[in-house]
Amino acid sequence: MARQEQKNSIFFQGAKDGVPVALGYFAVSFAFGVMAAEGGLSVLQAVLLSLLNVTSAGQFAGLNVILAGGALAEIALTQIVINLRYALMSLTISQRLPEKTGVPLRLGMAYAVTDEIFALDAAYPAPLETRYHFGAMCTAVPGWVLGTALGAFAGSILPDNVLSALSVALYGMFLAIIIPPARESRVLAGVILLAMFVSTLFSVLPVLKDITTGFSVVLITVSVSALAALLFPVKEDASPGEDGLRAPGEDLRAAEDGGKGASHG
């Protein structure tokens, strides 16, 4: 019984951590819904795109191809290039799961390997619990779908300045995940700075800036992580991320708001 309770609490922890993701998603997918409706898609079509893809950059790019009446091969290629980073994320998640985790569970998890849920999974101390991922999915994905529906249905319901302010939420979440461990390690701090620097190069330099965002994330992640692994290999006995990313769990929240849980209320 106690064991079952613990399992439930891992699921609910995931669901709780998924709430800020849902809020950030809401803003981004609202904008997607507005664009889809303006382009002539129905609310149902916009919602189906969000429900079956759960990807921001990929959906915006896909929408452009659809509205322009592009070829199916074009939409296929766009999705491969922009979404390739998910393969890297899935690989990392897979390495953090217990090896015995079954195929059906893995296939279920794959549905919601997004930038943000990957960020949560990476911050969860290894080994990763599948129910944590599913918990996060249960709150985050409805935020994505609901935002799309509202955006497509009533695009003018939220003022522009509120929407644009909400669009930084997910970046704030990413920083909250990567910065605290960087305080403990100069190497990590340096690696993060380098990643941001290279990413800036990719957004301003000629040729580089013409590369789609999703694909440049792949190039940067592979090259900078490989360089860091060569120069600063981690101890063999540490499993990936085990001693790195901070758990988004109780201790952090308790320190933050005196255990009242107000920060996610």
Partner: peptide
């Protein structure tokens, strides 16, 4: 080591 750095680099770059 590569997989250890992936989340940090990926999230920072995004």
């Amino acid at each position: 080591s590569f997989l250890y750095y992936v989340p940090y680099v990926c999230l920072a770059a995004m």
